[in-house]
Amino acid sequence: MAAALPVRASVPAAGQAVKQHATWSPYDDNGGTVVAVAGDDYCVVAASTRMSTGYSILTRNKSKILQLNPKCVIASAGMQADQETLHKVLHSRHVTYQFNHRKPMACPAMAQLLSNTLYYKRFFPYYTFNLCAGLDDEGRGAVYTYDAIGSYERVGYGCQGNGKELVQPVLDNQLKAASPLALPPQQWLSSLPLEQAVDLVKGAFVSAGERDIYTGDDVEILIITKDCIKTDRLELKRD
């Protein structure tokens, strides 16, 4: 009896060859696209409002933009839970800052704070892809673009989220000079009049909505000028 057992045990039973165990991921991609374009005296920030997981739409109306003060906003794509947490942290830090300094935080300062906040969670990052946008101390449009763990740079325009592969080349084509090395030297960034910039952003979102399944429903557009933040809304296809 005992002799027979090892022989039987050496035969792998069906289904035991590949051991499978359930895995769980703390991350989910809830889709969406965010875009920001800086001008000489304005900044346009736009974000799609569809929130989804897999092939299902969770809601058609979820804002991805945090308005911190009249000169600075943060737009985030990625995972909704992390967006919400990050926005809450930044909002709280901004309130504290105002108690201490008796003024709203300037856009470049907020950009640095966002970077620090992201890097603080270097080994368990927020699954968010952010843009910080607004007006700088001289009143010029400012856009900062980030990776998930806080590397950032100031740019003339930026794009994050699911639709970035579709939108970024369009913005490059319209807003960037041929090459920074071209001779005679051309202006590195071309600045559009506000109406044309808004039109460009709307056009880019409509096109992204045609081809990216995670971009759709609505676009929330913020136009930041020295006087106020104006909001606009554009319908996209809902399929």
């Binding site: 319209q174 109406e195 044309q196 039109d199 460009l200 709307k202 056009g203 409509v206 045609e210 554009l234 319908e235 996209l236 296809k237 809902r238 399929d239």
Partner: peptide, 13 residues
Amino acid sequence: YLQTKTYERQFPQ
């Protein structure tokens, strides 16, 4: 035919 484009460019390229 469910939906057409929702926006026409004002300053088309």
